[in-house]
Design a protein around this nucleic acid. Structure first.
Lengths: 198, 198
DNA sequence: ACTGTTTCAATACATTCGCATAGATATAAT
DNA sequence: ATTATATCTATGCGAATGTATTGAAACAGT
């Protein structure tokens, strides 16, 4: 019997995600959110728990999408899948390549010295997930190398995570979703030298 | 004849630099600046042109310090000097290593989708300077390799800049000035393989 | 001492922030 | 049609923002 909502919830979250991605959390006001998402201010509060609640939903949406669509192949793959992931960071059309960088990077940088522990959790979990996927793929690769452990998996994975951050920042700095290409090439080159011969 | 200023200008800029470094531009209000820098609100306006003017001074101070103290050795050096620079990014005590990351990275991420072209200029010039120093050092290294150009200098330099960004973001994310160590090792490892044999 | 000049402390200002409220609106069930 | 319920549009609120103003304060020169 109620009056129908004037927005689609999922659609709204996606729009909010893009808006926060572009402008950051602080710089985007509730009134700006209204315009860019089509959600009315009342719904932002009653449905999402205010600006920060909507932001959290956006972060979760972004995280889940990236993990399931971009990271997933690395779980059962090896170095080639890692290389494919890095390529995706600077390949137009991939959801992990954007002239706005990465919502998780941007949020982490912005939020580092601030408030919400819950925000810090979401970003930390995201990077942990990425780290895990790298570890998996590297372990898989090591099996192909017949246990010749010539590289430290955990350490390498951590380094790759930092590289991903750098690529995203470069993309955002240049406002060009391919700006991080040089580091991608460097990393892929490096990984290729570790790879089991095909 | 005038009343003496209650602050030292240079000292004030340094304090402001640290404050912005920690909190970011938006999150730090004028009243917070007053407390953390000891500059009175009137002076912020009359001496520095308001909050943004003081921020610009802080950016210039940071940039000049980093260029002259940390990047400089690469101008006449080669890959060993690049490696030393990367080590400095995760070495406590170095001015380029900090649990707050890098003021230029933070500013670039925060400002990317916003306003001030003058802010964008400062950060862009900073990264151009870093890129130049990498190029110089790599060219010097190539001379030692007797013109066996086995790597593209410009491309590699660009990649190294992105790596630096990633290391800083990792430091800030973990609030640990050594968190980017893994990528530093990876990069140094990579560079070492390019180096002329000693 | 007095004066001139500059800086400082305190306050006020308009604007914007996120949030809250309340009356109007739109649907489904009766 | 009427009613019930939930959502939407309007407006308002206190707090915080950066900036502007103004009278008191602190020095150098006379």
């Amino acid at each position: 019997m109620p009056r129908p909502k004037s927005y689609d919830r999922q659609e709204a979250i996606e729009k909010a995600c893009i808006a926060f991605w572009q402008h950051g959390f602080q710089a985007l006001g509730v009134r700006g959110l209204e315009q860019q998402t089509g959600i009315n201010q009342f719904a932002i509060r009653s449905e999402f728990g205010g600006k920060e609640g909507l932001f959290l939903e956006a972060l979760h949406y972004y995280s889940k999408a990236a993990i399931t669509h971009e990271m997933a192949p690395m779980k059962t793959g090896a170095i080639p899948e890692i290389i494919a992931f890095f390529d995706g960071l600077v390949t137009p059309g991939s959801m992990t390549s954007s002239p706005y960088g990465c919502l998780m990077v941007n949020t982490g940088v912005e939020n580092a010295r601030i408030k919400s522990p819950v925000l810090a959790d979401v970003t930390a979990q995201y990077w942990a997930a990425l780290n895990d996927h790298f570890v998996r793929a590297l372990e898989n690769e090591q099996k192909l190398l017949k246990n010749q452990a010539i590289f430290d998996v955990e350490d390498l994975a951590t380094g790759l995570v930092s590289a991903v951050m750098g690529i995203h920042v470069q993309n955002r700095q240049q406002q060009d979703e391919t700006a991080g290409r040089a580091l991608v090439n460097l990393i892929c080159n490096f990984l290729d030298n570790l790879k089991a011969p095909t």
